[in-house]
Design a binder for these strands. Structure first.
Lengths: 181, 181
DNA sequence: GAGCCCATGTAATCAGTTACATGATTAC
DNA sequence: GTAATCATGTAACTGATTACATGGGCTC
């Protein structure tokens, strides 16, 4: 895509919290970041090797019982420094990209029903996502009662909530506007 | 990226409204779609040739006074059929990707001030975008009074408004949460 | 003559997904 | 035995941006 390769940052970030293998890093990203960030194995494994070569990670072969051996990576002081450096830098904003809006904007070439169906499908998918966010929120608020220091995870979940709720509201608005046209 | 190539659809869509050259198509996309869709020349010109080869577009060389000649493309009946077909198909939802949220989620490794600065920068950029949307909205509502059929453009602008407003609200919420931590 | 807009295109580069390959272990 | 999970990796493909090249005409 010729946008800069950011794969190393989620990896460094995840490894700043615990030592993990590539396979486990993938799982953590899916569990914790997947609603706003994703990485595939095809990116993770080569990046891990590179980061190790650059001295941002150390690695250790670990034997497991009942499972294959794994290579566990550990972030180095140099790796932490790079992570902190990146955290300081201005955020590169990525552009929105929405096939739904693209279809909507050429909606005059199909039936209103078709367009309304697309909007409705979108709304249903959002409702599910919103429910997930609400579950995350409840869990995080419980944790936060004991550890009021790290509200960061909660803040990202609130972003999801706000976004999905706004989009649901927009769906209602859009359906109303298209209904009597 | 291995996500399917959609470049042809904005091109067909734009050409369903007026006959244009590649250069003009780029301008139209920037003017009308850029807040949720973008295409570069590197995609547009090769795609135009391909669409012409497939018979979805016709082309004509047009001389201009005071400007270089241009190749104006015109959508064919076959092209319109492909556009309508795509409009019927279910929307492929693309994933959110946010470097801001990524930085936030590892925010415990830097100062609260740094994170708040990122959020604040984001909020300022959103305010500008929101103002733009409001201008678009006013213009479109004026047009809509005379032509109450095609509310589609307006609906996409309302999406922008809703999204940006929600994100601004989230910024306030986030700053408050981070403020007393 | 410098710099900008119009106009079209290609090449280089890279991001990122998907498919494929391999192999261990566990559970049915 | 076969499917599922754990674990690691490579190769193929392609989407998409950016840079580069070219050239006409306009404005200062």
């Amino acid at each position: 895509m010729a946008r800069s390769n950011k794969t190393k940052y989620p990896i460094l970030g995840i490894l700043s919290q615990e030592d993990l293998s590539g396979y486990e890093i993938k799982k953590r990203i899916e569990e914790r970041l997947s609603f706003y960030w994703n990485e595939s194995f095809g990116q993770i494994y080569p990046t891990l090797k590179e980061l190790r070569r650059e001295g941002l990670l150390g690695s250790e072969r670990v034997a497991q019982e009942g499972k294959p051996d794994k290579t566990v990576y550990k972030i180095t002081e140099k790796g932490m420094a790079i992570l902190r450096e990146w955290l300081e830098e201005p955020v590169e904003t990525e552009r929105l990209r929405s096939e739904l809006l693209l279809k909507l904007s050429f909606g005059n070439h199909t039936s209103t029903e078709t367009i309304k169906r697309h909007v409705d499908d979108f709304r249903e998918s959002l409702k599910k996502k919103l429910k997930l966010m609400e579950i995350f929120e409840r869990n995080l608020r419980e944790v936060l009662e004991d550890h009021p220091d790290h509200p960061y995870q909660l803040v990202t979940v609130l972003f999801g909530k706000k976004t999905y709720q706004a989009w649901i509201d927009w769906c209602e608005e859009a359906l109303a506007l298209l209904g009597n046209s």
